[in-house]
Write a protein that binds this DNA or RNA. Structure first.
Lengths: 340, 340
DNA sequence: TGATATAAGGAAAACGTTTACCTAAACTTA
DNA sequence: TAAGTTTAGGTAAACGTTTTCCTTATATCA
């Protein structure tokens, strides 16, 4: 057992003040860039001492006093999935540029966990909460009501009005895919999707259907497979098992995510079906691995890398306080990626 | 422009105290489970008020006073990669059970960014810092020196002694792969790996080489390809390009990560080589997508799902204060996954 | 010149906790 | 019964900021 050495302490504002021969008020003002309150000389001197000592305002101290921490929370359902990770990385990077840090919470699509985290985040006085794939929950509705700074990503607010939104035009994307199927004469077609309670999935589907209807094409119920499971790979596999029975093979399948397409592809492989020759698989998200392990996949590229700055821009707008009447919304451009 | 509504406030300890007719000290003691300080009645009454009001101690208030927040930091190089995300998810889940939350920092393998984050985390008074793939940096060494609670994952401390470690026995795993190549008569073999400054990569490699040497097998320098790039897919591809020239085809390639194997596989596909018939590809990590999109890949399964509890157990040990003289270390079991 | 505005900066209160110290009552024990 | 001990709980001092008042000195203006 070694001598118990307590971790080092960061220098406090008081040390900086003493060292620079000014009051702590002045140091605080220099740090926070309160102009017209310190002469150029003083500012310079304080800055130098700050650099020398490696001073950084204590998160707890400033949060306590100003009721706002330097932290933003990101709540995701399932942190391990590729696209969540992509968004998380993008948001983290964008926050870093604004000198903020990110708490990551995994809600596992569970309303109770989500509520627990929401309350904890308020207790942490986070400056904002970013909801990636939010579910409907009492506290979420309450927070929306109370004007908590919320930004929804991909899936729109399931808890009533309020909050910003960052995503793509899912309706249009769905229609684009339908148009592509028609144009390439890939009919009859089928669809495999996950729980459509997510606005993203629902809108992709609606867009797809609307376009088909406009073209006078009927989608029989048997051509649309949906499963409640959380695992998209499994959904894709089971969907393909159901669709590809008795030698019936649609000319194309719209899979609502790349992972669903991966699952469907496995079944195709098992059945000896060539993709895309026998059946065209169309995914969604554009997993960065596609080029390497799924060159047979057509998909919609969602620019997750750019979601980060969009989210933070929205937060800035909200923080600025001049709430725009309609909740601020940023739609980013998607793009079809046709590999097959 | 709507009326500016400030976000709701959480109830404070003072409200709880008043409501329950006790002092705030008593409430604090109940919350923190200080026994022998409140009667069963009082405890019960306070508990009820807390539940009613939905009280949660303010993170800032308690952090400021006790010099410890409820936050643990996870520093990763590249948050978007699958295995980082897997570890992040596991750590997050394990922390949740201990009523802690996780800040996620992406260092991009950059020593300056890492240092900046380390200092910011100290300013946030985080309870511990988990380094996934740490790089050597001045502040890291300083923190190790000062006894900051650090746990290294996968890649051992590059900043001197100290800190806990969670990972697998990379030496053994490397040897296992070599043994497999020998046993299956998959010689000559080759290796593609990324920057070996990471202890994980270095040890895998060493284990592999040692076993080969023990078997009396020479690995010519030309059979070992390494590239400094950060992108493992690219590394794998370029490695395969270099290895598979002039019709020379090794019987097996040990790729130091699954992504490297994906990259190599792409080149094999381009050359019309069958995997594993013509050349066996052996990866590392066991990406969860393997079953679906890379059924040709043999790999080592690293139980990232279990890293979370291991990390938090280690933190608990460190927090308990009775520092074990040799830094605590947890080695988790790996497993070969032979699909091919 | 006197009045007034502005610049520069200090003193001190408050934010919500935790905890060392104190007190008073209720039990022991000799 | 007196002295000591335990139990239950209150008081108040930090913790490190930010910010509202002040104060003083200097510049501006009529």
């Amino acid at each position: 057992m070694t001598a118990q050495r307590r971790p080092g302490k960061s220098p406090s504002i008081e040390m900086v003040a003493r060292q620079a021969g000014v009051s702590i008020a002045t140091v605080s003002r220099v740090v926070n860039g309160v102009s017209k309150k310190a002469s150029a000389d003083t500012t310079e001197r304080v800055r130098r001492v700050i650099a020398e000592l490696g001073y950084r305002p204590s998160g707890a101290g400033s949060a306590l006093r100003s009721r706002q921490s330097r932290i933003v929370a990101l709540l995701v359902p399932g942190a391990a999935s590729a696209y969540m990770a992509a968004v998380a990385a993008a948001v983290e990077a964008a926050l870093r540029e604004r000198q903020k840090v990110m708490i990551l919470c995994d809600t596992a699509e569970d309303a109770n966990i989500q509520d627990d985290y929401l309350l904890e985040m308020r207790a942490q006085m986070v400056r904002g909460m970013v909801m990636l794939g939010a579910v409907d929950s009492p506290v979420l509705t309450q927070f929306l009501d109370e004007g908590e700074p919320l930004v929804f990503v991909n899936r729109k607010s399931p808890g009533g009005p309020g909050g910003g939104f960052v995503g793509i035009d899912n309706l249009q994307a769905g229609a684009d895919i339908a148009a592509y199927f028609v144009e390439r004469e890939r009919l009859p077609c089928a669809v495999i999707h996950a729980d459509p309670s997510s606005s993203a999935t629902a809108e992709r589907l609606t867009g797809f259907r609307r376009h088909m209807k406009r073209e006078g094409i009927k989608l029989p119920a048997s051509a649309i497979k949906t499963y409640p499971s959380v695992d998209h790979l499994e959904i894709g596999y089971r969907g393909a098992v159901a669709l590809l029975q008795n030698g019936r093979v649609p000319r194309s399948i719209f899979c609502a995510s790349d992972l669903i397409a991966y699952g469907a592809h496995r079944r195709c492989r098992e059945l000896g079906l060539a993709v895309p020759e026998d059946v065209l698989l169309f995914g969604f998200d554009d997993n960065p691995l596609n080029d390497w392990v799924a060159p047979w996949l057509d998909t919609v590229h969602v620019p997750y890398e750019t979601f980060g700055t969009a989210v933070v821009d929205l937060l800035d707008t909200i923080w600025a306080g001049t709430q725009t009447q309609p909740a601020p919304e940023i739609l980013l451009p998607h793009k079809m990626v046709l590999r097959a």
